[in-house]
Design a protein around this nucleic acid. Structure first.
Lengths: 197, 197
DNA sequence: GTCTATAGCCCGATAGAC
DNA sequence: GTCTATCGGGCTATAGAC
């Protein structure tokens, strides 16, 4: 039939195209500046198909949010297997942040810069997501066993992560021009010095 | 005359009302979610008056950006007078951030969370503004005179500021619940440990 | 499932009286 | 300088053919 011939073989391919295109556009222009017609043009998927698969713009954004976070969570779990002590665990986490920042800047920018709460109703801030709660827990353990030192483990966790993320931010903004992988050692050095005993 | 009677005594009062109202709304909802009619309602200044004084929405945003940054810069200069050595200068800077975060959260949120580049064409990122360039310079000096230690002063500066700002962020997001002024000592402690010799 | 066409809404900005 | 009324445009979301 005619309709049959026009139908794409795999609908999931379109879904995927919309998800990746929309995330890129959200990162580049911000959620509110990205219109559905814009996503239609760049993804080459029609308005009707988008609304069919995602319902509305906010649900599309929510799906991108969920998938990005669980992808990151998965990478973290992979990197953590076999890291026994607190210090090498924190190093693995920091290295993951830097690696992602370099190999997939779009993902990192998405997690760093988008105020998801601004357009996703009742979405937990990124810092309360599993990976970042894991850091808080790890640092609490490190303080307990004497590897780390802090009067206030939450402040310690914030300092550790903040030191790394801020460096990544400044790299993105062109203030720090060296490629991030050449900076991995000073980055981890400063971040760990903020918390270790 | 009738027109005379209806005219407010001080036009600058209206300008001020628009500036403070708009900044509050930008912080609460994000630039793109704030409409002119919304500003009109909340500031009780008419559409016509707003366009008369500011030209358009972007110029209004730019004026808020400029005034906020120079206000912060002024506060910093005040706090720095009389701080001789690098360590007490950095402490003064950190304490300023924490003080502002607590006494004027709207100003801090404005500087921290708004992606100004997203709606202000060719606006320098906050991190390149005078106060933050000052930190970079100060840390370079500290490394030179041996007070601080770093292979890469830019990374050191990013770590120092990042440690503090991230803690403030987590406080705003309810992860760290203690009032910030009770945390000033662990905050400065962690941030300085990241960079000192 | 996918498309095109368009309804319906609200926004930024302007016009023109006062 | 300040107001109200309104225009043109672009948006989200829907309708209905295929």
């Amino acid at each position: 039939m005619e309709a049959q011939r026009l139908r794409k073989i795999d609908p999931q391919e379109k879904v995927r195209a919309v998800l990746t295109t929309a995330r890129r556009l959200f990162v580049e222009h911000g959620y509110h500046s990205v219109s559905i017609p814009m996503i239609v043009r760049e993804s080459r998927v029609s308005t009707g198909a988008i609304y069919h698969h995602f319902g509305n713009k906010e649900q599309l954004a929510r799906r991108i949010y969920d998938e990005t976070l669980s992808e990151f969570q998965e990478m973290l779990e992979q990197r953590l297997t076999g890291q026994a002590d607190v210090l090498s665990q924190l190093r693995a986490f920091g290295k993951l942040l830097v690696d992602v920042a370099q190999s997939d800047p779009e993902m990192m920018r998405y997690m760093l810069f988008l105020n998801h709460g601004e357009f996703l109703s009742s979405c937990p801030p990124i810092c309360s997501s599993a990976p970042f709660r894991w850091v808080q827990e790890t640092i609490r353990n490190g303080v307990a066993d004497g590897t780390l030192r802090s009067d206030h483990p939450f402040v310690a966790a914030a300092s550790f992560i903040g030191a790394i993320l801020r460096t990544i931010e400044l790299n993105y903004q062109g203030v720090i021009i060296e490629p991030l992988d050449t900076l991995i050692s000073p980055i981890l050095d400063h971040a760990l010095r903020a918390v270790r005993a």
